[in-house]
């Protein structure tokens, strides 16, 4: 796979440099680590998001007004180190504490938890909300094992909105946890992405095959099958998603159809068309639909569908203004 990079060991730093070259007016680098913060930090709970790099525009693209205040990123597909997380948290803390929001992966938990301990010793309070939206990554009985994928975006949105309202750390964490509990996703993989360092594919899949439920790092899914039409594929995804989420007629959702990297917007719209039809058929109210490639894995092909089940509190926070280079409300 051809990749437009320089030295593979410089990809993360050079990505940040390029991002800041474009958005220098709004963000600044956190010294000595791979992290950024907003320039106009407010006197409120700081929201810090992050994870491994390679999933652009996650995570840097989601820092801004009504979203995250700081972003900590690790090496490609690897969690940021404890000192990286700690430095970003220190940079955004206004004295009202820091909320960490990130996907449920072992590496991220180890590093963020260690950072939280270091911060506690300095008197900076923190809370953590894990995103576990991928319903195919583990059955409900093992909810603790479910991984975070594109649903990150909805949970970041709610966390940012709540912090912007001036709520205290406990309250921001509580409503963000609710958002995480009400966010459900499922994906399908068509082609692997490649690691910038080694050029290796993240998984192998025959040309005419797809895999339902495959994770964004190539974690095994629930079913490998022959390629099918957009409508068939969307029906399969939606059936499982509605079944797992227990979202039923009369309820209200926001939808994200997320491309994994190389799947075109044309294809994503075709999928979204079917998602809308299915939800309408089931009398599930669509509050909002977003069709974008927010959570990618390099040039991985495929998509995920995310539903955020809304109540009045979540809806208000969902609709609150937000502005970042890759997300606006």
């Amino acid at each position: 796979m051809k990749k437009v990079i320089n030295n593979p060991s410089d990809v993360v730093e050079e990505t940040i440099e390029g991002f800041l070259a474009a958005y220098n007016h709004s963000f600044r680098k956190v010294e000595n680590v791979n992290g950024i913060t907003r320039r106009n930090l407010k006197d409120k709970v700081g929201v810090v998001i992050g994870g491994g790099s390679g999933h652009e525009p996650l995570f840097m693209g989601f820092a801004g007004d009504g979203l995250a205040d700081g972003v900590t990123i690790g090496n490609v597909f690897a969690a940021p180190s404890p000192n990286n997380v700690q430095s970003v948290a220190q940079a955004v803390d206004s004295g009202k504490g820091v909320l960490f929001v990130y996907g449920n992966y072992m590496g991220d938990i180890l590093n963020f938890d260690m950072a939280a301990e270091l911060l506690e010793m300095e008197g900076i309070e923190s809370r953590t909300v894990l995103v576990r939206d991928d319903v195919a990554s583990a059955p409900m009985e093992r909810y603790e094992d479910r991984r975070g994928i594109a649903g990150d975006v909805f949970v970041f949105k709610i966390a940012g909105g709540a912090a912007e309202q001036g709520l205290d750390l406990e309250s921001v964490a509580k409503v963000t946890q609710k958002a995480s509990d009400q966010t459900f996703s499922i994906g399908v993989a068509l082609n692997p992405g490649t690691m910038p360092d080694s050029g290796e594919s993240t998984f192998t899949l025959a040309d005419d095959e797809i895999e339902f439920g495959m994770g964004i790092h190539g974690e095994p899914g629930v079913e490998r099958t022959k390629m099918m039409t957009a409508d068939e594929l969307t029906e399969r995804l939606m059936e499982r998603l509605l079944d797992e989420s227990k979202i039923d007629s009369g309820e209200e959702v926001s939808v994200l159809v997320n491309g994994l990297g190389s799947t075109t917007l044309m294809e994503l719209f075709i999928v979204n068309r079917k998602v809308a039809q299915i939800l309408e058929d089931k009398s599930i109210t669509i509050h909002d639909m977003d069709v974008n490639s927010y959570c990618t894995t390099q040039e991985m092909g495929g998509l995920s569908i995310t539903l955020l089940k809304l109540d009045s509190e979540l809806k208000e926070l969902y609709d609150a203004p937000a502005n970042s280079p890759y997300y606006k409300k």
Partner: peptide, 12 residues
């Protein structure tokens, strides 16, 4: 190792 690697391996 802890500060440069990240991931689960960095901490462990």
């Amino acid at each position: 190792m802890m500060t440069s690697m990240g991931g689960a391996s960095g901490v462990i």
